[in-house]
Design a protein around this nucleic acid. Structure first.
Lengths: 232, 232
DNA sequence: ATGATTCATTGACATTTATCAATCATGTGT
DNA sequence: ACACATGATTGATAAATGTCAATGAATCAT
């Protein structure tokens, strides 16, 4: 049985695609293509949102920074997903920061255009509702994993989630290649880099994963990792 | 400066109150008063939602259960808040369970009635959107706290949050009394009961809190607890 | 009021995870 | 190909947290 990534992934792909022509055109007209090079900031915690971002290419990490300067990655956005619309709806500053993990291309829709379409489109409004409601499931799962599971299980789970997220990038018939630095992965798992590396070494010796270079990880035996998570 | 509970509390009080008369009446007609005694289950993880619950009296814990039977409390609902509507909107089973922490009174609105009102009321739809968008802020904060902060800080923070949640119950001029078992509090903080108790003992000796009987905790010096959380 | 039961507390100890320092490997620019 | 800079890895150790077992205190049913 395959890993049920839905519990840890938003999957907003079709949010705008099935929209009635009128609203779709209304939003599309206001879209601007924007690019962000690897490592560039897209928006910062506590700043006020200026618009929404529809992911076209690349990956974006969403994280919070604490007093000591440490970062906790709470989500990684992929192609098709929509970022940054919640703070616009609740009229609050961004609770998190966003940085490009790879070269990123997005479609940007300015705040006011988005808001005005939402405010008069029951269809869009209901789609967003359904979408956010599903995201709730993702957040509760994430919280319970962080609060209850030991590092080893969190690493296994994170690799499985990332394996699905990076699946789209793969070449025909090839296994997905997770491309992420040890620092970022540690912050995603919520542990120290050294501890993360020890877990990866262990998985490597058990032939569950293979690593190469500085930031490539290939999952060889997802089913073994699933056993570790005890979540299958 | 007072503790900013908004970051850890939904506050859905006015969600239905300001609604246009028509929709309000439509929902009100379908409300049923229901009661749950302390410890009774309101809904269970993986079951399909039958309706929404508007909290009128008491407290409800929302939690996930893991393989080993352990529970992680992810939220505590208070008077005025609305439970259980997200899973209805996303048409998914409940990702969490709900159990009454005290004797609880709710107004229950059956699934279909709620859905039909949402589907044709742009006003209600937009209110729910704003509401869920704010909740997102709460979830990211919760995740980063669980992932990055040590037990001592999580206990201090949890006491501050609960202090606000229990504020409404207090008698005139009296300090709020947090009424919760050690087991529940430990599950809310995400730690072992014994570890929690040691932290409480420490806070007691420092005169930050007072305890009495099995499940009463009074916060004496919130500002000292705030210092511990380093979040003020 | 009394005994039974459940829950809270304490202590000793084991385990997990973080931290610090040193070394190694990879990728970069020349 | 070479040296530099950055990130990855390893080892030793400390700190945080969990577990188990024993004891004490509050609540409940009679």
């Amino acid at each position: 049985m395959s890993f049920y990534i839905d519990k840890f992934h938003f999957n907003t792909d079709s949010l705008l695609d099935g929209l009635p022509k009128k609203e779709f055109r209304e939003l599309k007209v206001n879209m601007i293509r924007r690019e962000f090079k690897t490592g560039k900031s897209i928006f910062k915690e506590k700043s006020y949102p200026t618009g929404i971002y529809i992911m076209r290419k690349g990956k974006v990490k969403i994280f919070k920074t604490n007093k000591e300067g440490g970062q906790q990655i709470v989500y990684i956005y992929c192609k098709g997903e929509i970022m940054g619309y919640r703070s616009i709806l609740s009229n609050e500053p961004h609770p998190v920061s966003a940085v490009a993990l790879e070269n990123v291309v997005v479609s940007f829709i300015p705040r006011e255009k988005f808001l005005s379409t939402v405010s008069h489109s029951l269809d869009l409004s209901n789609r967003l509702l359904r979408n956010m409601a599903h995201e709730f499931t993702v957040w509760t799962n994430t919280i319970s994993v962080f609060a209850m599971y030991p590092v080893r299980e969190r690493v296994a789970l994170s690799l499985l989630v990332l394996n699905e997220k990076y699946r789209r990038n793969r070449y025909k018939n090839k296994l997905p290649v997770i491309s992420i630095s040890r620092d970022d992965l540690a912050q995603y798992v919520g542990t120290a880099k050294e501890t993360l590396i020890r877990m990866l070494q262990d998985f490597k010796q058990r032939k569950m994963i293979r690593t190469s270079g500085r930031k490539k990880i290939v999952v060889l035996k997802p089913s073994e990792l699933e056993k570790i998570t005890k979540l299958y």
